[in-house]
Every structure is written in structure tokens, then in C-alpha cells.
Design a protein around this nucleic acid. Structure first.
Lengths: 341, 341
DNA sequence: ATGAAAGCGCTAACAG
DNA sequence: CTGTTAGCGCTTTCAT
């Protein structure tokens, strides 16, 4: 069942069938009706491989993530898919699982399928690979780390806004010994979070001294809590570079009989869904995953539909902000007294 | 840059280029080398839309899930993608978000992109939609609910094995009042779990009386724990039809000052990743998501590569089993005494 | 073993 | 506004 068959049954040309299917407004409504009738009767589904081939538009957007099982991503993928459906696109989902080979393969797969744009949400990507995409004029959108080329856009995260709120919240609760567990510092996003923490502390006259390097995993959080708790100046609150780390901290605290939030206040980062489900619900800095996905998708759409002439690199902004749940509490006054006496 | 360009640069025909790229063994190694050399030099990536169009094989498998953000699915999607990469396929991921329109759209999208097979992991799908796929001879694989057509395979979950282990574990711990929170009973999979529970209880001479209908959400779990706790025969242990429900129970128990596992033993179902992260780590019945994905993928591959003649409906089996963590404990002897006196 | 050539199903000029 | 027609880039007979 192909377009010719429909054309002959509806007694029009294939061009007319194509036009009606694509909602070109210039077709005579009477012919259009005839076409739709046949299309519905025979259950005709146009072949997108064929139309993509000839039109040069596949109507597929690539989405490269680091790991689908990383709780940060499902929400993003879902939102991306929702938007794809609304806009009549498909999504080609690919994960790098932190493997350079796999990353290269991702790019190759995108090109072979002739995607119309790709969102790269891996927090880091080799520049040589990007060139492959740019060479083919595929619109690209990155988070934070996009290189400065025409046609590649960036979503700049405002880490400072949320982290400052977190620090000030803790300070307001009477905390002075506030620790920070970073992410892997080879990631720019992890560096940015640490810097934001340092700045926020200094702003209010606190020394950002209790900073330890984590790895954005639960295991890392567990290990580092142990380390922090043994240090000379034991923190009364800890902020983490992501939620999984905070969850590790919470778990280890539980195992050691340290009560969150009574004995230790805790703030995460990202606001993955899981943050609401754990006990106690985790206060965290939200970096909205649905917003992120939406911005990425819209960037791609607008870049795709723009005339080739005025390809630009647009910077988008995404704010972060504190969402309070139940993992923070006032610093123990007894501690303060003890120090005071 | 197309196959003709490569052919002319390598001084061979396009047919030879095509053959070498597809690893057809009959090409002269000397020619093949020439071709590969040019391909690599110019960075040629064959157009899969074109090859799909002519060969009739898109090398895309559809994967329909109910919701990407449902913690049950990310592991499945990741495994599916891993296997796709290994086998040189892409995955067309679609979610129904419990919306019949969206479900219909999913099927349409699959057909329009000419997928070579589709795995339907939505626990329920209208038969009329399935016909669209079957009409086009697209191999299908379902979980539990696949209709009895040639070319559609089924993965049968053995709910009984794991649920029996759970019940017996609880019984061995001295529990007699064991409640069960079901899923939405319009789902066959939820019914099957309840039935398995009833049977397991009866096997050991316990009456499966404390059964309440949930909805597989955390909120449902919270609500139903409240209800159970107020009932005349208050349970000392509860099993849930899925992990999210169990997490809701745990959360509500925490809020009410009921300690898990000391005051209440709890067992979930699925073994989503989250089960390990919550506090205390949740004991649950594992239905391996990676295994499920692997079986689905392999079913599709083998059905795709089979000669059209011998299309069959293969049934696959997936076992479930108890994984013990820290949400169960011995029933309070004081309670038993109290009842005895 | 290799090449020439005929399409796969569709869109987009172009002509009418 | 509609139809004719020339491809899109590739695979696959069919000859050679």
C-alpha cells in the first residue's frame, strides 16, 4: 500500500495525495476529502523513510544522555518524548555509559539516521566528535559545555541562585559548620557547583573549608559522610553536589545512628524524583529536568526551522532554586552552647 | 557525500561499495581495502533512510512502555539500548502515559517508521491496535498479555515462585497476619500477583484475608497502610504488588511512628533500583528488568531473522525470586503472647 | 567477483 | 489548483 495506490483509488495524482497528507492548504477540499477517505479506509501509513530521504528532513531528534538509569534522566527523556509527539518528531535515544567508544558510536548513529538536531546531555563530549555533527550542519544543544560554534546552543545553568539559597537557609537555621561534597571535579558542572558553594559561604562570612571530593554516586556519599564525621571540625550540615550523593549520606548516617535532620541537616542537588520518596524527604536544589528538556527541545526546533542563513548560537538560561522538604533542621543549640562555654 | 562519490573515488561500482560496507564476503579484498580507505578518508556515513527504504529493513525496534519515569522502565530501556547497539539496531522509544490516544499514536509512529519489530511493555493494549501491527507482519513481543496470534511472542512471568518465597519467609519469621496490597485489578499482571499471594498463603494454611486494592502508586500505598492499620486484625507484615506501593507504605509508617521492620515487616515486588536506596533497604520480589529486556530483544531479533514461512508464537519464561534486604523482621513475640493469653 | 540499471516510496519543481 | 516527472541514496537483480 503506497502513495500511488492511494492516488489511483482516489483518482488524483500522487502529488495531491502528498499535499493533502502534509496539510498543504492549497488543495481543493473536495479532493482532500476523497484522499482522506481512501487513506482511512485502507489504513495507509506513509513511509517516513521515503519522505525523509527525499525531503532531507527525517523529523528525528537525537538525545544523547550518559546513562538512562541515572535517575536524573528519565524525566528528561519523558518530557522530550512528549514534546516530540506534539511536534510530530521521533527521538533517537542514545547513551554513552561513560565510554568514549560508545560516545563515538552515538554520534555515528545520529548521523547515519540523519537526525535533524541533537541534544547532548552528557556533561562533556569530545570536540572532534562534535565536529562530525557540525560539519553536517546538524543543530546542537548542550548543557553548560557547548563549544563556541555557530549552530550550537547552550543551556547555561545558574547554579549560584539555588546554592546560595541552600547555604543561607542552613545558616539561618544556625549552622556554621557546613560541609560540601562535590562531584567528580573533571566535570565542569561539578566545578561550577563547588564554586557556587564557596562563593555563597563567603558572601555571608563563613569559611568554605569542609569541602571533599565525591563522585556523584550513593557509595561516594556513604564514604564521604564517614570521612566528614571523623574530621576535627565535624559538620552539622552537609550540602551535596547531587541527590544521589545526599542519599548515600543519608543511608550512611542511618547506619551510624546519626539522625537526619535532628543530628545532621542535609541538602542535595538536582531534585530527582527519588528525593521525594526517600525518608525523610530530601531538601534539595532543584534544577528542573522538565524545564531543561523543554529548553533543549525548543532550541532544536527553532534552530531547525530557522533559515540556514541566520544560524546562531543562542544561550538559554535555567535557574535553580531551593526546595525545602524534611532533611534540614535547626542546628542543635546544645552544640552551640558547648562551643560557647 | 554519497555512495556514488565513494564509488568513483575508489574506482569501483556503487554495488561494490554497498557490498563491502555490508561485509558481503564475496568482494575482492583488494577492492574492499580501496573502498574502506576512501570511506574513512572522507568520513562517509551511509544513509540509513535510503538503505532502509530499498532493503525493507529499517533496523529499528520499537519499544512501547507505559511511562518512562516509572522506575520500572529505565533499566529496561538501558538494557534494550545496549543490545540494540551490539546488534546494530536503533530503538524507537514511545510511551503511552496511560492514554489510549497516545497508545494509538505509538502504534502509528512505529508503522510509519517501518520498525522491524516491537516490544510492548505496557501491561495491556487494545487488540485492534495490535492488528495494525500484525497486518503488516511486524514481529511483536508482550509481557503476559499477548494475544494468541502467529508472530506474537509472550514473556510469561512466573509470579508464583517469588511470591511464595516471600510468604514463606514471612511465615517463618512468625507472621500470621500478612496483608497484601494489590495493584489496579483491571491489569492482568496485578490479578496474577494477587492470585499468587492467595495460593501461597493457602499452601501453608493461612487465610488470605487481608487483601486490599491499591493502584501501584506511592500515594496508594500510604492510603492503604492507614486503612490496614485501622482494621480489626491489624497485620504484622504486608506484601505489596509493586515496590512503589511498598515505598508508600514505608513512608506512611514512618509518619505514623510505626517502625519498619521492627513493628511491621514489608515486602515489595519488582525490585526496582530504588528499592536498594531507600531506608531501610526494601526486601522485595525480583522480576529482573535486565532479563526481561534481554528476552524481549532476543525474541524480536530471532523472529526478525527467521524465514517468513515459519513465524511462530514463542513463549518465554521469566522467574521471580525473593531478595532479602532489611525491611523484614521476626514478628513481635509480645504480640503473639498477647493473642495467646 | 563486479558492474549497470531498475527501483524502494515519497516530495518538489515545473508546467499546465 | 493539479498533475507529470525527476530524483533522494541506497540495494539488488541480472548480466557479464
Amino acid at each position: 500500500m503506497d502513495i500511488r495506490e492511494i492516488a489511483s483509488r482516489a483518482k488524483v495524482s500522487t502529488a495531491t495525495v502528498s499535499r493533502t497528507l502534509n496539510n498543504i492548504p492549497t488543495v481543493d477540499p473536495r479532493l482532500a476529502r476523497r484522499v482522506w477517505k481512501v487513506v482511512n479506509e485502507v489504513g495507509y501509513y506513509p513511509n517516513k523513510l521515503a519522505s525523509g530521504l527525499v525531503s532531507g528532513k527525517s523529523r528525528v531528534f537525537g538525545l544523547i544522555v550518559s546513562e538512562i538509569t541515572n535517575p536524573f534522566f528519565p524525566e528528561i527523556v519523558q518530557t522530550f518524548e512528549n514534546l516530540a509527539v506534539e511536534n510530530n518528531y521521533e527521538i533517537l535515544l542514545t547513551s554513552t555509559v561513560h565510554d568514549p567508544k560508545r560516545m563515538e558510536l552515538s554520534v555515528r548513529r545520529m548521523i547515519e539516521r540523519r537526525v535533524d538536531g541533537v541534544a547532548i546531555l552528557t556533561f562533556g563530549m569530545e570536540e572532534s566528535l562534535i565536529q562530525h555533527l557540525r560539519f553536517r550542519k546538524v543543530p546542537l544543544v548542550f548543557v553548560d559545555v557547548g563549544p563556541d560554534f555557530p549552530g550550537v546552543s547552550n543551556i547555561r545553568i545558574n547554579y549560584q541562585s539555588g546554592i546560595r539559597q541552600g547555604v543561607q537557609h542552613l545558616a539561618a537555621l544556625g549552622h556554621r559548620q557546613i560541609a560540601f561534597i562535590t562531584g567528580p571535579l573533571h566535570l565542569k558542572s561539578a566545578q561550577a557547583r563547588r564554586t557556587a558553594f564557596e562563593k555563597s559561604m563567603e558572601e555571608i562570612g563563613l569559611a568554605p573549608e569542609l569541602i571533599v571530593e565525591g563522585d556523584h554516586t550513593m557509595e561516594g556519599g556513604m564514604r564521604l559522610l564517614t570521612q566528614l564525621v571523623r574530621s576535627e571540625t565535624r559538620p552539622t550540615a552537609v550540602m551535596c553536589s547531587n541527590d544521589m550523593t545526599a542519599i548515600g549520606v543519608m543511608r550512611e548516617a542511618y547506619d551510624q545512628g546519626i539522625k537526619v535532620p535532628q543530628d545532621l541537616s542535609l541538602i542535595g542537588f538536582d531534585d530527582i524524583r527519588l528525593a521525594q520518596f526517600i525518608i525523610p524527604p530530601l531538601s534539595t536544589i532543584r534544577m528542573s529536568q522538565t524545564e531543561l528538556a523543554r529548553i533543549a527541545f525548543e532550541s532544536l526546533i527553532s534552530e531547525t526551522e530557522r533559515q540556514a542563513a541566520l544560524k546562531g548560537r543562542v544561550d538559554h538560561e535555567l535557574d535553580t532554586s531551593l526546595v525545602l522538604r524534611r532533611s534540614t533542621a535547626r542546628a542543635r543549640t546544645s552544640d552551640v552552647d558547648a562551643t560557647a562555654e
